[in-house]
């Protein structure tokens, strides 16, 4: 590894680069040369192997900052493209270690068997995320029809000048927000139930937008995408006009890897 030697020399001077880690894969994987990593200019992605596992890494300058849109997309693209081919344990964005040797000594070697077991478990499966979002007009129409208090408050506000109704409008908005939250819970449960009927693992994600109706991650066999699409299509057909749906993936199994001691945080 000539690269590592050069790197160590640089490190003696002022440790100008670090080793960014994307994820963990089986050792028999290869990285195509044109894959670009995070950083500006983008680092060259390569593998650091130990035993039967390997880390996908690239060098990053330590004097810069990470987290540009390009960085974020590079991280996810690399892991998703990898996941489509082989099992991969994705790391959260922003993992940097001192050197490739450090990656072997502190990450790969001590946890080799655990990581290998997890990779074997993921073999042949990928993550998809189903995202459902309310059509605002439709869901607000439902809420007005179902909640006399909200309809009454709206009428009251409508007949008064805006500057006199700030508190009333806040109250109205809060009731609407609560009504949407209740609908979100019901729709998330319904979608999760439909997806779980495929006999797959599901994880409900918290909403990331005010209009989110549901976000559910699914871990499913690579060759069952059709079945998943069918379930999502059916749900979309049933919800037509009130919910729009997207099916994202295949992804690395971001929602299905657990860091020890982290599970209870949510």
């Amino acid at each position: 590894m000539a690269g590592a030697t050069t790197h160590e020399a640089a490190e003696v001077q002022q440790r100008s680069t670090g080793t960014y880690i994307y994820g963990l894969v089986p050792a028999d994987v290869e990285v195509s040369e044109d894959v670009l990593g995070v950083g500006d200019p983008p680092g060259e992605v390569r593998l650091v192997r130990h035993g039967e596992i390997a880390a996908l890494v690239s060098e990053v300058p330590l004097d810069g900052r990470l987290g540009t849109p390009d960085d974020l997309v590079a991280h996810e693209r690399l892991l998703d493209a990898t996941a489509a081919e082989v099992p991969v344990l994705p790391l959260r964005f922003g993992a940097v270690m001192t050197t490739p040797d450090g990656v072997v000594e502190e990450l790969l070697a001590p946890h080799h068997d655990d990581f290998l077991a997890a990779l074997n478990e993921l073999e042949g499966r990928v993550e998809y995320v189903v995202k459902a979002r309310y059509v605002e007009r439709a869901v607000l129409g439902e809420i007005l029809a179902e909640n006399p208090e909200i309809a009454r408050l709206r009428e009251e506000i409508r007949t008064q000048p805006e500057e006199l109704t700030r508190q009333e409008r806040i109250d109205l908005g809060q009731l609407v927000e609560q009504a949407i939250a209740a609908k979100r819970q019901a729709d998330t449960e319904a979608l999760t139930e439909d997806l779980a009927a495929l006999g797959v693992l599901t994880v409900e994600r918290p909403p990331s937008h005010e209009h989110d109706a549901a976000q559910v991650a699914v871990l499913i066999e690579t060759d069952r995408e059709d079945e998943l699409e069918e379930v999502v299509d059916e749900f979309a057909a049933r919800s037509e006009g009130r919910i729009t749906m997207r099916l994202l993936g295949p992804h690395a199994p971001y929602d299905f890897v657990a860091t020890p001691g982290e599970e209870t945080e949510r």
């Binding site: 994705p90 964005f93 993992a95 992804h251």
Partner: peptide, 12 residues
């Protein structure tokens, strides 16, 4: 996806 999911390096 990638900012609050995936393995956390600090734990290892």
């Amino acid at each position: 996806t990638i900012l609050d999911k995936g393995l956390v390096i600090d734990a290892y």
